[in-house]
Design a protein around this nucleic acid. Sequence first.
DNA 1: CTGTTAGCGCCTTCAA
DNA 2: TTGAAGGCGCTAACAG
Lengths: 371, 371
Amino acid sequence: MNGDPAFRRTPVPYHDDPLLSFAFIVFGVVVSKVTLKDVADKAGVHPSTVSRALDPAKGYLVRDDTVARVRTVAEELGYQGDAVASGLRRGRTNTLGVVVADLGNPFIAPVVRGIENQLEGRGLMALIAETRDDHGRMSRVMNNLAARRVDAAIVTGARTGDERLLRRAQQQMPVVLASRYLPGSGIPAIIHDDERGGGLAAEHLLQLGHRCIAQLCGPADISSFYERATGFRSRLEADGVVALEPDETAARPVMAEGRRLMELFLDQHDELPTAIFAHNDLMAFGALEALGVRGLSCPQDVAIVGYNDTPMTAFTNPPITTVRLPGYELGRMAADTAVMLIEGGQQTGSSLVLQPVLVPRHSTLGWHATA
Amino acid sequence: MNGDPAFRRTPVPYHDDPLLSFAFIVFGVVVSKVTLKDVADKAGVHPSTVSRALDPAKGYLVRDDTVARVRTVAEELGYQGDAVASGLRRGRTNTLGVVVADLGNPFIAPVVRGIENQLEGRGLMALIAETRDDHGRMSRVMNNLAARRVDAAIVTGARTGDERLLRRAQQQMPVVLASRYLPGSGIPAIIHDDERGGGLAAEHLLQLGHRCIAQLCGPADISSFYERATGFRSRLEADGVVALEPDETAARPVMAEGRRLMELFLDQHDELPTAIFAHNDLMAFGALEALGVRGLSCPQDVAIVGYNDTPMTAFTNPPITTVRLPGYELGRMAADTAVMLIEGGQQTGSSLVLQPVLVPRHSTLGWHATA
DNA sequence: CTGTTAGCGCCTTCAA
DNA sequence: TTGAAGGCGCTAACAG
């Protein structure tokens, strides 16, 4: 990598070979842009024949030896079909938009992975965009996807305020919500049962004997956090326990906000709760930090439950009890749903709901009532 | 979300309004596909005028009031430009391919994030693909990107065996390597100085008094692991210490392989090393597990150094000493380089190399010589 | 400043 | 089984 020539890419008319319409200069090397027509000319057939011969779904229309000849010529010329032109003609780009709130959130990686893995093999690819939980960005992103004529969009970063936007987007492409949904919007969604997840967290803490319990809530305009909160509260109430909460919810479900809410709570309440439910693992770590600063330790002084089962939670100090969500599966199912919608399949009606599992670890199991 | 009507998307000729060439049925609602021509007709101008009026870079060619009128009509009709058609005509898709080895590797998230954030605002978007370190997949992915006429590709998942493939890909689009590079290939790369990173790890351990030191190596055909190994070895040798190694390297840089190599090492060597350098944090955790199974603990029995400074390493048990890489920055710079190449800029010559930093934590600081 | 013309590369009628 | 024709939606080049 020393002193490479400029990497130019200037289209120039190519005169030497009448077969080749165009050529490019790349790294100083002339490279042909071979088109269907070039292949057709060299093979002595019409471009449409080449098109048919090279399309697996249309190959049967062409005589076998013609197909073979065309294939050979295409190979020789290094023909590389143009998906853009094909997309324009067919009205299909074989591209999916994937809209996430935060690429840095560890929960999102398996989801994207599930989507990508499910798309691969079908010739589809994912265009990825990050909204950072910002409505303006969401708007721009959806417009951009519409302009690019993606065949469908999978949105994992929806907030309540985005509903109108997303319904409008639906007029241009199928939209599938993943992980976060918009109740009553009619937009198909693949989600996890967060009300149940919140309930599982509550039940676990109750069983361990906790009665003074707090929760640090994620943004209330995001379905998954709202439902975690509700599920948690109602399970506690069933046992006559009231969930304590700081008087704010997190602006974004990140570590810094977990820390801030924990501090806020400690400032506002004299009595230390014996257990805390943080709405995701990131916030749980923030809470952990805030406790540490005040000389409190987990699980001796306070038990903590997180959410998501982020890969490292098993190895943290202490290992964090958390609610595991099937992120990879969720991604795969969202991709499947999108593909089904693209192909005009029937929307079966209700959202698909995946079930969470509680994973007990030392952050709660290590706590013992000091009575 | 109960009993939504089928999500059909059938193109139908639209007769009621002669202005509108086409309409679609989406969710049972007829939605127009408004084209430039529709806007032009309604505004009483020629399509090219609309095209110019709506293109920020060409707007100055059109009289202000015409621009205003066109804008209004476009708004009224809900005109949404077609980036596919535009791309075909202009020979530019405003799309970048981003090829990663493993979307699940926590190091990759900030890189992708850096790329995406740098692209956003320039109207570019990233098509993402995962190779899973598989040569066949890499081949298919690069072909797919070529067919889609991406303006450039950023490849973070390159292995030595992919060199020919990627040089061929360069004839169709600019290629930028990120994180992993191919020495001598002439393909521009943004990397981190892994030889230095390995050296930092070695130096740290030597300073703490270790003399019996092992390393668990990542795949040798990936530049970054190869250089970590070399940098580590040579720094140790400078102090007359020979790096111990199991007789295999990891097939893939993942936790399971870290565990396997650690076990292999323990089986092959009678003497327990006092410190271990794992080629990334994932492998470090694998090693930690393997040690735990044999009743050994870190840092009391063995000190461990990881690599990457994966977000959670600060919170693990024990917190892991690791080498921090500027992943987000690397992504941004790779995107910048790609954009520069797209715009025909000069390739400045050498690769850009970012510097790693050692982050000392309890996994090494907690170790004390038992002499 | 605006209109005309001519495709970009492909695919899908329709006709032979 | 193949060819001819036309156009997807947009934009660059050329006139005026």
